[in-house]
Nucleic acid binder design. Structure first.
Lengths: 165, 165
DNA sequence: GGGATCATGTAACGAGTTACATGATTTG
DNA sequence: CAAATCATGTAACTCGTTACATGATCCC
């Protein structure tokens, strides 16, 4: 369901687009939130068209098909946003790494935490220099908060590891 | 792969266990990090035994099978922890909701953000009163950081929405 | 004996990834 | 004309969820 919502959300906020465009937008604007490649997007658009959530607005050059969101599609996004329980599923490989840090010796653990810290720093840098329009402002701010708290956790953990090691 | 790692990690830190035990541990100690039900765990343990990562240590009452991690299994967890790229996949339905907030009118958006805030508060409360042994201390601390930053984001966003609305 | 919990599984389906395959158009 | 990019798809596979199914044991 989340893939549908993401696609409908992109069509709603950025206007009609082809599967190819949507795949690019996943790469550039949505990829720290959700991922999907063209092999998942193309068949999903076909199903969504069959379900009346999108329509093929017109076909362009090179077989390019432009999809537009329908009223039914808009209703579905709104319904999902308003009704979706945020506690449903969380899967974080980084948190799993944190969970299992105790299995490593101190040197290895330090290396892992440093890698995690570098990852959050890179994300912070990416988000910080956005021209502003690429992300919804609220998602941008959430990303910043999360990156900063990840870095704070890493610093705290590194200090603890170095103290005990 | 992450399911294997999670199972091996539990077996490594908490000792031999049955599929049933592992499913319980997923519910109680790992569930804000990774989820898996018994229907996924039982077949995976069989495959892992075939791959030499775990062994059936003995069979107990009621067909209970106790699995233990092997040296090969330990090596795999360590390798994964040390070598895994944290930037791989992140999928957050909450972040997707944040991304799409602009599609809602202010009243609806406020309701959604308040729900998200309540969710993070509930998690904070759960983590805060842990006896300490249930989570690895580093994962616990990461969870606390994330919950607090989620609440901070929600407060900021609610203020912004109320200001504009 | 009856309900709760222990304990294990299978089957069908949906979601997501990787590899393969094809052809049109633009740019150098 | 060759390489890059545009543009769409299929097939095979793995991962994850939901529904179904079974039987043992414990406690009242």
């Amino acid at each position: 369901m989340s893939l549908r919502i993401a696609l409908l959300g992109l069509l709603a906020t950025k206007g009609p687009a082809s599967g190819y465009d949507l795949a690019k937008k996943f790469e550039h604007s949505l990829n720290h939130v959700w991922q999907a490649g063209h092999t998942q997007i193309y068949p999903e658009l076909v199903k969504m068209a069959a379900d009346g959530l999108v329509t093929v607005e017109h076909e362009g050059a090179r077989g390019r098909k432009i999809y537009a969101i329908t009223a039914e599609g808009r209703a579905l996004v709104t319904e999902w946003l308003v009704g979706h329980d945020p506690s449903a599923t969380v899967r974080s490989e980084t948190a799993l790494q944190a969970f299992l840090l105790a299995l490593l010796d101190t040197g290895q653990a330090v290396a892992v935490v440093e890698r995690i810290k570098a990852h959050f720093q890179a994300r912070l840098a990416t988000l910080d220099c956005r021209p502003g329009g690429l992300f919804g402002q609220y998602a941008l701010s959430l990303g910043l908060h999360q990156a900063r708290s990840g870095i704070a956790w890493a610093d705290e953990t590194l200090a603890a590891l170095r103290h005990e090691g």
